[in-house]
Computed example of a mutant assay.
Amino acid sequence: MTFLKIGELARRSGLSVETLRYYERRGLIPPPDRLPSGYRVFPQDTPKRLAFIKRCKTLGFTLEETLELLQLQHHPEQESAVVKQRVDERIEEIGRKISDLQQIQQALQGLSALCSGKGSTADCPILAFLEQEPTDTSATDSNTRG
């Protein structure tokens, strides 16, 4: 069996050595074997596992969720419904985040509408609003709710 030293694995995967060590500590990749010379070596299929991890990260899965998906991948007797459920949960979470971001966008648009952009910052209604106590949001409520 061919093995990869950590530097070669980092080069092939496009990840840093520090990231690889972090993934190892978190259990995302198995601990490497050691050669008699003391070099740490990883199995030849580790780049494929790292590509899986990178795709999960791109899709917004946490490291814990990614670890769970990796474990499911290695248990073909499991029902695929478990995997689909994880993806559906991710979709719901992203929907909530999009909703939150839209609310933030509307609030910022309301703040922007308060200010002409002319005059000094001493008279800026945006800064005046931001300076208010958190419980007093009525200044933008009518501008941000739609």
Rank of each mutant, 00 (worst) to 15 (best):
P76S: 14
P76E: 12
R49H: 02
R40I: 02
L50E: 01
F42G: 09
E65P: 01
E77W: 09
Q73L: 10
P36A: 07
L70K: 10
Q44D: 15
T62S: 15
A51W: 01
T58G: 02
K57D: 14
D45V: 07
T66L: 05
P76Q: 14
F61E: 11
K48S: 09
H74M: 05
P43E: 12
C56R: 02
T46D: 04
T66W: 04
S37C: 12
E77T: 09
V41R: 07
P43W: 05
F52C: 02
K54R: 15
L72V: 04
Y39S: 05
Q73Y: 03
P43M: 04
K48V: 07
G60V: 09
L70C: 01
Q71A: 02
S37I: 04
T66C: 04
S37M: 09
K48Y: 05
K57E: 15
E64V: 14
L59C: 11
K48D: 09
K54G: 12
H75T: 07
P76T: 14
E64W: 05
D45M: 05
L63G: 00
T46A: 06
F61A: 09
R55T: 14
E65W: 06
R55Q: 10
Q71R: 13
E65I: 03
L70F: 04
G38L: 06
L69D: 08
E65V: 04
V41D: 09
G38E: 14
F52S: 06
E77Y: 04
K54M: 12
C56W: 02
E68S: 11
T66M: 03
R49N: 02
H74E: 14
R49D: 07
C56F: 01
H75P: 00
Y39K: 07
L69Q: 04
Q71M: 02
H75R: 13
A51T: 14
K57V: 06
K54N: 13
T62R: 03
T58S: 06
Y39C: 04
R49S: 10
R40W: 01
